[in-house]
Design a protein around this nucleic acid. Structure first.
Length: 425
RNA sequence: GGAGAGGUGGCUGAGUGGUCGAAAGCGAACGACUCGAAAUCGUUUAAUAGGUAACUAUUCGUGGGUUCGAAUCCCACCCUCUCCGCCA
């Protein structure tokens, strides 16, 4: 959520900032609404002042005369009634304006950071670094081929259970998934993150708070009988955890790591990544999340990114980091580093983690503040996948494949998986 | 799901129509006393919006309503607790 005061006082700068995203945002209508609302606020406040004064006077008169029905008092009551009528008119107006302004502002995305590369779309993203040697042989198997031959998962049968884009993990596949979750959680908790396991169903308020609503209702699954949705990422419950709080600065920064299943409708991606573990309606993810003071968020962003990278390094998976350009930034983010893992079968890097600094955008939507120099200040929130489990499994299968059809398990994972090889039995 | 009780400031808790943003206590901050501390005494101690400020308004779970006036009365919803039922 952008600052309403800024929109009222400096709409030009707001438009300029938003235009960095490569799309024109005309906010003049919102600007006008805020000005009108301001007038209403002032007028209402004046009316309330007069009315309050009169009510006190009536109270005094009644206790003085011991009679609440004298003509003088009745006259005062009639006057009071006039105030009441006017006040409720203004309150109604205020309500309407508040609602309009709020709906409009919550549709506006975050400002891109000044440090984000300027660009129109994903083609303008900037590769920051690469790590490891990408495997580039011909005739390498895709992870779904490997999964099928080693009987690690089944998507065809899963359509019986649900529909397409769901997976059932089997045997070593299920075991590998579990090993990855535990490995990642252990690694991050050793690095100072507190482990949480939040609810998978979240209410509309929570989705608004982190930026998925009102604009992206199409991308999450809704439970029709309740005001509950299947959470698309642990970012949602983790933001909502501290909704409407003023957090003691001594407790900052707050660092969470959470395993959660994630549910996404993937509307509009028909035909893309239909095979394998890359794009599913349900997937597992270990998420890093951080609340900190505004002055510390850039540094924290580097840190959260390197904590996510750490997993890829330990698993010995080649990857690169991409600095997302202003035109390709997610709705809530001001700056994002994507970690992309090398998938040899498709000979390209695929996103496996997205590390974002949302600055005060989510904190303002969710009202999460701290005291800085006695002033309430919105915190900055950061999130990063650390990592998406399914895509990590895909990368391990493809990068660890051996000529005999078996798959080598990265050393760091062996204690968790219980074996250094998956082979056909 | 049924029956009952309840939601008040950082916490405990009083307040059932009138100057109440709210007694009292605890906690916290500052000051006095002290070499220092404890104890004691004194003062201060909610948030939000607008305003340079004085100040003004709003907020007693949330949203409506009644009234000149609502923490207090009415309606709806949410949440918590106890008992019963069901369940991992």
């Amino acid at each position: 959520m952008l600052d309403q005061k800024l929109i009222r006082e400096n709409p030009k700068s707001v438009e300029e900032n938003l235009s960095l995203r490569g799309k024109v945002h005309n906010i003049s209508h919102i600007h006008e609404l805020t000005l009108k609302k301001r007038e209403i606020d002032i007028e209402l406040s004046n009316l309330q002042y007069e009315s309050k004064k009169l009510s006190k006077l009536i109270g005094q008169e009644i206790s003085k005369s011991q009679n609440n029905n004298s003509p003088e008092i009745n006259n005062l009551k009639i006057k009071g009634n006039e105030y009441r009528v006017k006040i409720s008119e203004f309150e109604e107006k205020q309500r309407i304006f508040d609602k309009q302004i709020n709906t409009e502002i919550s549709k506006l995305p975050n400002f891109p950071s000044k440090d984000a590369p300027i660009g129109k779309d994903e083609n303008n993203n900037v590769q920051v670094k690469t790590w490891g040697d990408p495997l580039k042989q011909e005739h390498l198997k895709s992870h779904w081929e490997i999964g099928e031959s080693l009987n690690l998962f089944d998507s065809i049968k899963s359509t019986k259970i649900s529909k397409s884009r769901f997976i059932t993990l089997i045997g070593n596949g299920a075991r590998l998934e579990r090993a990855l979750i535990n490995f990642m959680l252990d690694t991050h908790t050793k690095n100072g993150y507190l482990e949480l396991m939040p609810p998978a169903l979240v209410n509309s308020e929570s989705l608004k708070g982190s930026g998925q609503l009102p604009k992206f209702s199409n991308e999450s699954f809704k439970c029709s009988n309740d005001d509950l949705w299947l959470s698309p990422t642990a970012e949602v419950p983790l933001t909502a955890l501290h909704k409407n709080e003023i957090i003691d600065p001594k407790l900052l920064p707050i660092k969470y790591v959470a395993y959660s299943p994630c549910f996404r409708r993937e509307a509009g991606s028909y035909g893309r990544d239909t095979k394998g573990l890359i794009r599913l309606h349900q997937f597992n993810k270990v998420e890093l999340y951080l609340f900190c003071e505004p002055s510390k968020s850039s540094e924290a962003h580097q840190k959260i990114t390197s904590d996510a990278e750490n997993i890829l390094k330990k698993l010995n998976l080649p990857y690169r980091i991409v600095d997302i350009c202003t035109g390709d930034l997610g709705f809530s983010s001001s700056r994002t580093f994507d970690l992309e893992v090398w998938l040899p079968s498709s000979k390209c890097y695929r996103e496996i983690s997205s590390c974002s600094n949302c600055q005060d955008f989510q904190a303002r939507r969710s009202s999460i503040r701290t005291k800085i120099d006695k002033k309430n200040t919105y915190l900055h929130t950061l999130n990063g996948s650390g990592l998406a489990i399914g895509r990590t499994m895909a990368a391990i299968l493809e990068n660890g494949q051996q000529k005999d059809g078996s798959v080598k398990i990265p050393e760091a994972l062996v204690p968790y998986f219980g074996s250094n090889l998956i082979k056909n039995t």
